[in-house]
């Protein structure tokens, strides 16, 4: 039986008394799986992703990542756990503006405790940016910035990658380059969870979870997603 990389049991998240972002969500994501989370804005996709990564905490329920119960961990423990187990990819890239591409990758190494310039350089080469390592984010295109973000997410060799709209700010060509890298990572055995609005991206994954009003409304494999897609497209 395949082990669960991420296991959520009855996870509920309240932002305040009246705002419930997640409503008793239970979900198991196997190691090496590629899952897309889709749903309309405000449905709880990003909250779910943040709770998986430990960036946010649940109001109730249990979260296990790589067989570690992270539910009750304090902020510093969660940070430590995250940097060793999870790579994060953001829609806005979130690169440090005054550091070069290489340094943006090395900064993740620094927080991990092992700075290796050569490894960071190889990491950037793997995403096709070997020639842009000394450029600052403002000197890079959106696609290149996203690839730096991916290189940074991978540099500490996490086995789980969580991506929030990784192609959301990219044109078709750059989006495809990023998706190619993600496909490669999945083939290498990484567990990948992507939050997306783009059905074409979602269809490339092995499993699609649809969120509505903080609940999982559908959980399917791409071959069965035509109806899900149709429903999304007809939602006002």
């Amino acid at each position: 039986m395949t082990k669960s990389a991420i296991l959520l049991e009855s996870v509920t998240k309240y932002y305040d008394l009246y705002t419930r972002a997640l409503n008793s969500v239970s979900l198991a994501i196997s190691e090496g799986d590629w899952v897309s989370i889709i749903g309309p804005s405000g449905s709880g996709k990003t909250t779910l992703l943040n709770i998986m990564s430990g960036l946010d905490t649940a109001s109730s329920g249990t979260i296990r990542v790589n067989e570690t119960d992270i539910t009750g961990l304090g902020q510093n423990m969660l940070t430590r756990f995250r940097r060793e187990n999870i790579g994060l990819i953001f829609q806005q890239y979130h690169l440090i503006p005054y550091l070069t591409a290489l340094e943006n990758v090395m900064v993740a190494q620094y927080f991990q405790g092992t700075v290796d310039k050569e490894a960071a350089r190889v990491g950037l080469e793997n995403v096709g940016l070997g020639h842009r390592i000394e450029h600052r984010p403002s000197q890079l295109s959106g696609g290149e910035q996203q690839r730096v973000c991916i290189a940074r997410a991978l540099i500490n060799k996490p086995n789980i990658l969580l991506a929030d709209e990784p192609t959301g700010n990219l044109d078709l060509k750059n989006g495809e380059i990023v998706m190619e890298i993600i496909r490669k990572l999945v083939n290498e055995g990484h567990t990948v969870v992507i939050v997306t609005h783009n059905m074409d991206i979602a269809k490339q994954s092995r499993r699609i979870i649809e969120m509505v009003d903080g609940k999982i409304s559908a959980d399917s494999t791409p071959i069965l997603t035509a109806s899900v897609s149709a429903r999304m497209e007809h939602r006002p």
């Binding site: 902020q75 510093n76 940070t79 995250r82 994060l88 440090i96 900064v107 993740a108 927080f111």
Partner: peptide
């Protein structure tokens, strides 16, 4: 704020 949030998200503890 964003830079600090980013640092935390990629593994910076409060001490760092």
């Amino acid at each position: 704020r964003k830079e600090i949030g980013l640092m935390k998200s990629i593994g910076a503890e409060n001490l760092k």
